[in-house]
Design a protein around this nucleic acid. Structure first.
Length: 411
DNA sequence: CCTCCACCGGAACGTGAGGAGT
DNA sequence: ACTCCTCACGTTCCGGTGGAGG
């Protein structure tokens, strides 16, 4: 008896559609500036801001803002590739330090990373420093002081690090060797971040800002089309499919990453179904699959206290009680007690609820009732059913799955 | 126009885990 | 093993909030 599924069958259908799948994987990066489409204006402004480098002067600080998936990071990287190449041609000393604040969050770690990248005079070995912040700060200033060229520090995902003071110190560390101050390029998707800086810093850091505009559906279609040419075999992706992917992504803030993901998963869906080309239906299925994956992933990785808070939200949502924080906290306490987890204060739980809001799992609004005070109401839970199923996969919460939730709702 | 509701959310502080140097 | 430090997570305290009702 031969097995119903054989590896050779799978391999035979493999890669009928894809030519080079790498190009539509999430971690694929474009090679050069010329591959970046529909960003001419942004590139022009960027170069304009940075041209001082070629006069031997530090550029002004730049604040780059744009929603996720618009290519802020890749644009910046490619811009600096070009700038570094040109600086080398003209024998200008330029040091660009890239830091992703999502990976390196703390002030201390960022400073350590910068020190690690800064060259020592005459390549002396780096000093070993204790764990003290002051020592790192002093050493940082010392290294900058002796560096004879221009220093540019790119802080990507700046909103993930809380470090106004550190930035302040960086841009005030003048080098005696060159007379220049280091420049900071801050990249973020949080436009409100500017306002979190103290005024003196705001005016210095945000001297120049560069707003990366979302792509419209037409531009997205161009970008997708360019990828399709390399990633897929000819005549596999009809133009309606490209338009559809573009339209969906344009709807979500013109996010390129999403549109490429959608294209890849559509291709995979079509492949599984043994289609000879991608159909519109495949795109729709891919879209819901991506959506599900996203929710499950987010909910799964929540800390247990957040999970309990979310669970309380869902229970209250399905009950006759109002969806106010106070009620949710009431249910939260009972669940936490029942599953044997520390019961937090209401203050802390409201923070957890705001975090869920920021993650896009729940939506809440403040309601002002005049003399009857103020309250916050959860108005929406995204994919409630799916979220609930995912919550029950947690070991600590499994026991609640088959119990009626209404037993909590007694006054 | 003023008061005052009742919770929100900012700020400051406390604590223990954990990393790095000695 | 011990010291020093950072940082995430929590708590306590309290000023802020918009508008219904006087």
């Amino acid at each position: 008896m031969s097995p119903k599924v054989s590896l050779s069958d799978i391999l035979a259908t493999n890669n009928k559609l894809f030519l080079n799948k790498q190009v539509v994987k999430p971690n694929y990066t474009l090679l050069g500036l010329e591959d970046i489409l529909h960003r001419d204006e942004e590139i022009r402004i960027y170069f304009e801001y940075l041209k001082d480098i070629f006069n031997g002067v530090s550029p002004s600080n730049i604040f780059v803002y744009g929603k996720p998936g618009l290519g802020k990071t890749i644009l910046t990287q490619r811009i600096f590739d070009e700038i570094k190449r040109e600086a080398e041609n003209r024998s200008i000393d330029l040091l660009v330090i890239n830091i992703n604040c999502d990976e390196i969050r703390t002030e201390h770690a960022i400073l350590q990373k910068i020190i690690q990248e800064l060259p020592t005079p005459k390549n002396e070995p780096k000093k070993t420093l204790g764990n003290s912040k002051d020592k790192h700060n002093n050493y940082f200033r010392e290294l900058v002081d002796k560096y004879p060229g221009i220093i540019v520090i790119v802080l990507d995902e700046l909103d993930k690090a809380v470090a106004p003071e550190m930035i302040n110190r960086i841009i005030r560390a003048q080098s005696k060797a060159s007379g220049q101050f280091p420049a900071v390029i801050g990249i973020t998707n949080d436009l409100g971040l500017k306002d979190k800086f103290p005024p003196h810093l705001k005016s210095v850091l945000c001297e120049n800002s560069l707003i990366i505009k979302p792509y419209n559906a037409e531009q997205l279609a161009d970008i997708i089309r360019a990828r399709v040419k390399i990633a897929f075999r000819p005549n596999v992706v009809p133009d309606v499919v490209i338009q559809l992917c573009a339209a969906y992504a344009a709807h979500e803030y013109g996010d390129v990453r999403r549109s490429i993901d959608l294209l890849r998963v559509s291709g995979e869906t079509a492949e599984v179904k043994n289609h000879s080309e991608i159909q519109e239906q495949d795109v729709r299925e891919a879209r819901s699959k991506l959506e599900i994956d996203k929710i499950v992933e987010v909910v799964k990785t929540l800390p247990i206290q957040s999970k309990i808070s979310l669970l309380a939200c869902i229970y209250v949502f399905d009950s006759t009680w109002d969806n106010t924080t106070v009620n949710i906290y009431e249910i939260y306490k009972q669940i936490a007690y029942e599953v044997g987890i520390d019961v937090l204060t209401q203050r802390r739980v409201t923070d957890l609820l705001s975090e869920l809001d920021q993650l896009g799992i729940v939506e809440g609004i403040n309601i002002f009732q005049g003399r009857y005070g103020r309250k916050k109401v959860i108005t929406k839970i995204v994919s409630k059913k799916l979220a609930l199923e995912t919550l029950y996969t947690d070991f600590s919460l499994k026991q609640l799955e088959n119990l009626p939730s209404n037993r909590f709702f007694v006054r």
